[in-house]
């Protein structure tokens, strides 16, 4: 049962899960970070209020976040084929994962940045800083602890989504759990993969917490 092929398969599953999670998180932040910043900046109390832009971005985030991931997975198949060339496999899963995670990340970023003290923004304006300078050197820097906490949550959620992608042959630990545990009733393999997923989430959480504490200069 615990032959070298099974162990090899699990090892490969871990790597695939990490590959999907890390790249999806990266791409989702490429979209979600500016999205979240834009939500704050275009807000009516923001640096550059813009009703239309805010409403569009706000509605888009709500709509995309309310589509269940499994449905999104299927809906996005044409897009995935266009981007990756196939809709099956680990790399193909990165596309729906990114699309599902981006609006969630946009909301996390939005709430992190909203925590920045408006007085500090006012002070930067009084010194003649431009909006771009305020975004880059004030908002993102002052909110960094909260942003990292948000990233830690996001990465855990994306790992969970990636396990679901196993259903459409996405690979990774989730795929193994479904194939062996669900279809073949090999509960021990399923349990091992679930435990490994839990450990991965723990690891990400730990690294995230340590980084956040280390970067936080607000405490004495």
């Amino acid at each position: 049962m615990w032959s070298s092929t099974v162990i090899e398969m699990i090892e490969k599953g871990i790597l695939e899960s990490l590959y999907m999670t890390l790249f999806s998180t990266l791409f989702a932040y490429v979209i979600g970070l500016p999205w979240g910043v834009a939500l704050v900046v275009f807000n009516q109390n923001g640096l550059k209020p813009n009703k239309v832009a805010y409403r569009v971005l706000d509605a888009l985030a709500n709509i995309m976040r309310s589509i269940p991931f499994l449905i999104l997975l299927i809906l996005l198949i044409p897009v995935t084929i266009f981007v990756v060339g196939t809709s099956i496999g680990t790399t193909a899963t990165i596309v729906p994962l990114t699309v599902a995670a981006a609006p969630m990340i946009a909301r996390m970023v939005e709430s992190s940045i909203q925590e920045v003290d408006s007085g500090v923004i006012e002070a930067a304006q009084s010194m003649g800083a431009s909006n771009w300078q305020i975004i880059l050197h004030v908002l993102l820097v002052e909110a960094r602890v909260s942003l990292i906490a948000g990233a830690t949550i996001s990465i855990g959620t994306i790992l969970g989504y990636s396990a679901m992608a196993g259903i459409v042959g996405g690979g990774g630990l989730g795929d193994i759990a479904i194939r062996y545990g669900y279809y073949r009733y090999q509960k021990d393999i399923m349990i091992v993969t679930v435990v490994l997923l839990v450990l991965l989430v723990q690891l990400f959480q730990f690294v995230g917490n340590v980084t956040a504490v280390k970067l936080d200069k607000r405490r004495r």
Binding site: G119, V120, A123, V138, V141, E142, D216, K217, R218
Partner: peptide, 8 residues
């Protein structure tokens, strides 16, 4: 409230 950058 001074409004200093707390992370710098």
């Amino acid at each position: 409230n001074f409004n200093l950058l707390m992370q710098k």
